[in-house]
């Protein structure tokens, strides 16, 4: 389980467009680096990220070895009803991560 942080605004009005931010702790090994003993470090990057809001997918990204460590995402959604915003990701080693936050719409 890798660590992630998600940020939603503390409160939103119905119909308002709000920013969702996501930060994932991951080394994003590109597969070209060598360790201190000269051995190739195998590629291991977060290859898929998906975010859902109120059960519906609102954001998806496919990442490659060109993305820096600890990737950061920001995207916008239209706040319609109070609900859970969740993010899920998977890396090349098969390790999954997930993080959730509640968006309160008034």
């Amino acid at each position: 389980m890798t660590l992630g942080r998600i940020q939603v605004p503390p409160a939103a009005r119905a119909g308002e467009v709000v920013e969702i931010r996501l930060l994932i702790q991951h080394p994003m090994e590109p597969g070209f680096r060598r360790d201190a003993n000269g051995r190739l470090i195998p590629m291991n990057v977060v290859n898929a990220v998906a975010c859902r809001y109120g059960g519906r997918e609102v954001f998806r990204a496919e990442l490659g070895p060109g993305v820096a460590a600890n990737p950061y995402f920001a995207f916008w959604v239209r706040a319609e009803a109070s609900g859970e915003v969740s993010a899920e990701w998977l890396d090349d080693a098969g390790v999954r991560g997930a993080v959730q936050a509640q968006l309160v719409v008034s």
């Binding site: 660590l3 942080r5 931010r21 930060l23 702790q25 600890n70 950061y72």
Partner: peptide
């Protein structure tokens, strides 16, 4: 405080 990547280590430190 959200985008600062160092805060990931602070969050993990709390764990």
């Amino acid at each position: 405080d959200f985008a600062n990547p160092g805060m990931l280590w602070v969050a993990r430190g709390a764990e």
